[in-house]
Amino acid sequence: MTQAIKINNLNYQYDDTQTLFDDFNLTIESGQWVALVGHNGSGKSTLAKLVLGLIAANAGEITVFGVPLTVETVHEIRGQIGMVFQNPDNQFVGATVADDVAFGLENQQLPSNDMPSRIDEALNIVGMQAFKDREPHTLSGGQKQRVALASVLALAPKIIILDEATAMLDPDGRDTVMQTLQALKARFGKALTLITITHDMDEATLADRVVVINDGQLILDGTPAAVFSQRDLMHDNGLALPFAGELAAQMQPAPANYLDERELIQWLSRLKK
């Protein structure tokens, strides 16, 4: 498997404050869906910014698909990574949905004639083609984030990072965004590496792998099942388990190992018989 992102001995601190990342290591395989979780202020957003070269590490190495991140390669690397931010309002550049999707294409200097089809395709994937001429502020939060996702998809990135993209949304908006992500994963499969930063552990269970960080330290790393079997450690780090995990812990007798929601329901209905 190729490595989409490889972080080696990363060190970083914001100006005068204490060190945030101290010899931090993380490798993300190409095609994985990784959920990055950690309490408020644990450094998740900082990590994403470091990978994108929006801020520069004090020491250490970040490579993206084998290319080390440097001043020379930063634009090439950004061309492979798309990012959706938490606040849907602060990431719109265009005055209409179509203009916004076009923004990245314009930067890539795509010929004007090729743009409409690329824009339509991207909007189609997230199910927003009907809103092409709408102004961003007339959209609901969930719709805005789907447009933000389309703007990123139009650039055909190999990696997409979502930094708490659902945090400001109501349950409906959250559902549509998560469904869109699952559809993306189904459509692009191994060609797309997905990193979702979230506080919602039920969202994190959708990923192939969960990475828990705290104050710039890697606390846990593994499949959702492996990570969520560490209930105490999760609680100690200000986090919780997905609902099914918290429930299983209250069962008497409790299941021997971690079960996700579907497995827990199966397990319970078998017990009953």
């Binding site: 929006l54 931010f85 606040n87 602060n90 990431q91 990245g104 930067n107 890539q108 200097q109 650039l155």
Partner: peptide, 27 residues
């Protein structure tokens, strides 16, 4: 200011370098 910083990030991530070397969607 926060909005401006966020927007600057969002623009850079989508490959913005300067306003000159760009093509135009609306011709």
């Amino acid at each position: 200011l926060q909005r401006a910083l966020d927007l600057a990030n969002a623009m850079e991530v989508r490959g913005f370098r300067d306003a000159v070397q760009r093509t135009k969607y609306r011709v």
